[in-house]
Simulated assay, not measured.
Amino acid sequence: MLIFPAPPFPYVLHSGFAALEVGERHLSRRNLDCFDLIVVFRGRLYMGEESSVWTVEAGEYLILRPDLYHYGADVCEERTEFGWVHFRAAGEWHDEMPKRLPAEERALLALPQKGTVRTLQHTIETLTEIDELQHRGEKLRRTLRRQHAFQEMLMLFEPAGLEDQSPLQAQRVAANAANWIEEHYSLPLTAAAIGKALNFHPAYVARCMKTTYGLTPLDYVKQVRLRNAQRLLMATDESIDGISERVGYGSNTYFARLFVRQYGMTPSEFRRSYR
């Protein structure tokens, strides 16, 4: 997954169309200094990036990173036609979900590195528009139109789970996430694991929970764990180490530090205050 906090949005540099005949393979490049988006219209393209290898079928796309070596992994077995766009991230980008979500006025554009285009014909038309605008019309106007068309095309590659949803839908997702966390808080949990369990992208789940509860999923996990630790400290004689492990913390030291930060006293002090 490639993550682009936006704005600023990625911007297009160059674009074009190409075809490879039987027995030909894609060029090899190192330090291209930009992302390379490839959309296959016909045939099958074999691409590699460092140790990763993909087969890109007609109707699929692949985004190659600017910082890794990419190459044609094998020769084409049939005539293969594709469009390409070289683009750059105007700001930061990530290959995994950032630990901190962007501010409210920004969003996360999350693109699978390889995927299926929603409407191939529309994608071809958009690529054609982007390519033709390189050489047509007044420079500022065509640059803005190319950028707009490119951003619209990127949105077609975004997983459905990240599309805008109604407030009611967001509340339902947040409630489902909260219920799932309540049932599984003792397990090793990550934002990715929570998103996978709910069949939504982790960034979307995080936004729903932040909007509904004012907490990210992992903040909510911490609250649930500490609340259950309080209950066990008051109701049982179980050791602090045992309680720490039961609520999902492998490290007693880390558990104690979180507890003090939340309640202003150590777990032992809390237990004594209720005895």
Rank of each mutant, 00 (worst) to 15 (best):
M1Y: 06
L2C: 05
P5K: 09
A6F: 09
P7D: 11
P10W: 00
V12Y: 07
L13I: 14
H14L: 15
H14C: 10
G16M: 08
G16Y: 07
F17C: 08
L20V: 08
L20Y: 06
V22E: 12
G23H: 07
S28R: 08
L32C: 08
D33T: 07
F35V: 07
F35C: 08
D36E: 12
L37C: 09
I38H: 06
F41C: 12
R42I: 04
G43T: 03
R44S: 05
L45T: 06
Y46C: 06
E50G: 02
S52Q: 12
S52N: 13
S52V: 10
W54R: 04
V56H: 01
E57I: 00
A58N: 00
P66M: 05
H70C: 04
G72T: 10
C76Y: 08
T80W: 01
H86G: 15
F87W: 11
R88V: 15
A89D: 08
G91A: 14
G91L: 05
E92K: 13
P98R: 12
L101K: 07
L101Q: 13
P102E: 08
A103C: 11
R106P: 03
A107V: 13
A107R: 13
Q113D: 02
G115I: 01
V117Q: 01
V117M: 02
V117E: 00
V117L: 04
H122A: 14
E125S: 13
E129H: 08
L133N: 07
H135P: 02
H135W: 15
E138D: 14
E138T: 12
E138P: 03
Q147F: 06
H148R: 14
Q151A: 04
E152A: 10
M153W: 13
M155I: 13
L156V: 09
L156T: 15
F157N: 00
A160M: 09
G161D: 11
L162S: 05
E163V: 10
D164V: 13
D164M: 14
Q165H: 11
P167M: 01
V173K: 01
V173M: 09
A175Y: 06
Y185V: 04
L187W: 11
L189F: 08
T190E: 07
T190W: 01
T190Y: 03
A191K: 11
A192N: 10
A192L: 11
A193W: 02
I194T: 02
I194C: 05
K196T: 13
A197N: 10
L198Q: 13
F200M: 14
P202W: 00
V205R: 02
A206Y: 06
M209G: 05
T211E: 14
T212A: 14
G214I: 04
T216L: 15
L218I: 13
V221S: 05
K222H: 10
V224D: 02
L226M: 07
R227W: 02
A229K: 01
Q230D: 04
Q230N: 06
R231I: 05
R231N: 07
L232S: 06
M234E: 13
T236R: 03
T236P: 03
E238P: 00
S239A: 13
I240M: 05
I240T: 08
I240S: 00
G242P: 01
E245P: 00
R246E: 10
R246F: 04
G248R: 07
Y249T: 00
Y249A: 00
N252Y: 04
N252F: 01
T253P: 00
F255A: 04
L258K: 09
V260Y: 07
R261I: 04
T266S: 15
F270A: 01
